[in-house]
Design a protein around this nucleic acid. Structure first.
Lengths: 205, 205
DNA sequence: AATCAAAAACCGACCAGTTGGTATGTTGTC
DNA sequence: GACAACATACCAACTGGTCGGTTTTTGATT
């Protein structure tokens, strides 16, 4: 609390490694990125990387446990923690995403880092899979809870199964980002957004 | 016509390479699979592989253009070519998939080869991306057309935007398979299926 | 039907570059 | 002086890819 953590004039070597590796994994892929690339881009040496992480896989695990989990919490868990209007929040997110798409096309070009890593690694390495699953579970749980509150508050249709809908929503978000990465056209993204809103509207009372 | 093509006692080397490579790419990943692994598993030599394909990437392109496209056509394009009841067909598919899940858990363990390759390669190599996009476009077009026929036939709700819904449906299918790969539990798959059916029901008149 | 050249199919040793990872340091700090 | 935080040189294994050579198939000619 005393330290000026919010102005890290000198980022720690460990977090620099994590951040750089995530960036490269995001642009490329886990298997397609070498530890040499990481240390060069991070401006450090291999000794530093293997001092903090036992191996490339362990570095990947730390990225999931720390950075990716944090990202899900920031975008979903915290905003929905007490909300009883998940549909409203998601609709807002879609609109915000539309503007973010133009300014920083990172997401539409490279997809979602969580989804990318999941698709590439979860069938190869069960340590990856279980850690990634935990992150998704947090996401699903908070969506589920928010949907339940929404039903009670009369902001979500009564007939739906919150647990099942939460699973579908996460699937459709991850799938959508994946499809946008393949199509890379504003036309497709807008059409998809239109369809998502139509689906979301069906969840309203 | 005269030849007994339907009993290929001896598979051609080229198709053996394609089939084996797809299998390895499916279980692992493109970058995570070496050409040595492919030639060993296929029981051929490196000379044969590079005789038929200019490089590893070209082999990947051929897999997309031939095997993956074929698979989409078999499962979607041909069945929906003249159908005016896409929701009924998809519901059937979901039920069939449930049984396939138990017998051959390949899809739930390793995901969808088309989705896997898309997520891994489309941001790395635009040749991959464009070929994969074409396959998805075929899928989307046939779904779109079938939804339109469904609306006319009174089997699909009038209010929906067929093009937008087609995009969402493909996204949710690809996303769902990806999530199942991460969770690997029957519990999750069943919950997801339940949610998908609820979404599909909303598309009925 | 036999012949033969040319082309296609295929082999496997070899290559330079890269891979993830290690061993042995040196440096700064409590 | 002990210990964490790095740096550097190095390694065996493997990477995608090449290349000269051999076998097999093909198609035209006799």
């Amino acid at each position: 609390m005393v330290e000026a953590e919010d102005i890290p004039s000198e980022e720690s070597t460990r977090s620099k490694i994590l951040r750089t590796a995530l960036e490269l994994f995001h642009q490329g892929s886990f298997n397609g990125t070498s530890v040499n690339q990481i240390v060069v881009k991070a401006g450090i040496t291999k000794g530093a990387l293997f001092h903090y992480f036992k191996g490339k896989n362990e570095l990947g695990y730390a990225i999931v446990d720390e950075l990716l989990r944090e990202s899900v919490q920031e975008n979903w868990v915290f905003p929905l923690a007490t909300s009883d209007d998940p549909i409203g929040y998601i609709t807002e997110l879609l609109r915000a995403f539309e503007k973010e798409m133009q300014e920083t096309p990172e997401m539409v070009e490279c997809g979602c880092p969580l989804n990318n890593l999941s698709q590439e690694m979860s069938s190869m390495d069960s340590s990856f899979r279980l850690r990634l699953r935990d992150v998704y579970q947090e996401w699903e749980d908070c969506l589920d809870a928010s949907l339940r509150r929404g039903i009670e508050a009369g902001k979500v249709r009564k007939g739906i199964d919150p647990a099942a809908v939460a699973k579908v929503l996460i699937s459709v978000f991850q799938g959508s980002i994946g499809m946008m990465k393949v199509h890379q056209t504003r036309e497709f993204s807008m059409g998809l957004k239109e369809g998502l809103i139509q689906i979301l509207d069906q969840l309203k009372p």
